[in-house]
Amino acid sequence: MLIAQEGRPDGTGHRPGQPLTPGHRPVRRTALALTVALPALAVLSLVIGTGHSSAADAWHFLTGDPAARADAPLRLAVLDVRLPRTLAAVFVGVCLGVSGCLLQAATRNPLAETGLLGVNSGAAFAVVLGLTFFGATSPTALMGWALAGGLAASAVVLLLAASGRTAGSPLRLVLTGTAIGATFHGLTSYVLLGTRSTFDTYRYWTIGSLAGVESTDLLPLTAPAAVGLLLAFGCARPLSALGLGDDSARSLGHHPGRIRLAVAAAVSLLVGCAVAVAGPIAFLGLLAPYAARAVAGPRLTAQLALSALAAAAVMLLADILARVVIRPWETPVSVLLAFVGGPLLVWIARSSRLSTAGASA
């Protein structure tokens, strides 16, 4: 029998020097498959579009064909239109996948969704304010308002959830987020009813799409997203300890309330960045963590990595399909995800595995 060497767990349940058990192999195989699939989907995203440029022409451009490189419209389509939205799809997918996985683990609810902390509603309200009272009509301006509103809403939720004797508890976070979200939703409806001129722009934003994203739009969001990712993976080990129960976590030197508040801060940053880029995207932050958990089991670090890869791949695939389903028009990517996510959510809710599908928290 093989004996494990001395060492500490690496956050996935595996100790350095210990041979991989059969439970670890599916994680590596799945991660490798997703790592291979992502570049392939990215190439497809670069060659497929709704314009007049064919996939063959775009492929020739990518492979360095001189004639294709000299084609100005083709260069515009590939580098200025498709490349930014490809990067945006990966960016949004990673943010929503990691944040959904964290939220489900922290709340001990496999059906928890990234909108629970009121980020989506706060972003929507801020966009309406920007459109109505400050003349914010450019995509960059709307992204700024969405990020500010999402972070402000989550800050209010965190402040309220951090007070009282049950500070930072899962129930308190969810209830506070739901209440703040409902409040912002009502305020958004009130402003829209009084100023219908902003409704068309808001309606396009709230549907959720990657159309019109530019490379410069992503640059200001990389820093807060990076902070959110670092915070998310830093919370993996203490959050795994929290899965043993609050009392056990305290005996190991952790503070359950602080852990959950740190998770909420990471989720707020990641979801705020994702909403700022693409608008509210439903289901992705719910389904990707569920699939990752089915492969990785209770190992939270592995769940986070697989969820990020899976969500990025699904987002890329959905964005590609959005361009070709009703060509030459484009379907909002959130609509496609809703068509897939709705039936899957019903199946998950009826599944006998739901009671055992909880995260490691």
Rank of each mutant, 00 (worst) to 15 (best):
P9I: 15
T12H: 15
P19Q: 04
T21A: 11
L32N: 08
A40I: 09
L41F: 04
S53R: 12
A56N: 10
A58P: 05
P66E: 09
A70Q: 13
A72S: 11
P84G: 15
A89C: 05
G93L: 00
L96P: 00
L102T: 07
A106T: 07
N109F: 10
P110Y: 01
L116D: 14
L116N: 06
F134T: 04
L147Y: 07
G150P: 10
V156S: 13
L158K: 10
A161G: 06
T166S: 12
S169W: 02
V174E: 14
G181S: 03
T188F: 01
T195A: 06
R196M: 10
W205G: 01
G208W: 00
A211N: 09
V213P: 04
L218M: 08
A223D: 08
G228R: 01
L229G: 15
F233Y: 12
L239Q: 05
L244I: 03
G245L: 09
G245V: 09
A264C: 11
A266E: 04
L269T: 05
V271S: 03
A278D: 02
P289N: 14
A291P: 13
R293C: 07
A294D: 14
A294K: 13
A296P: 11
T301C: 15
Q303D: 07
L304V: 00
L304R: 00
A305I: 08
A310H: 09
L316K: 09
E330K: 04
G342H: 10
A349N: 03
R350V: 13
S355F: 09
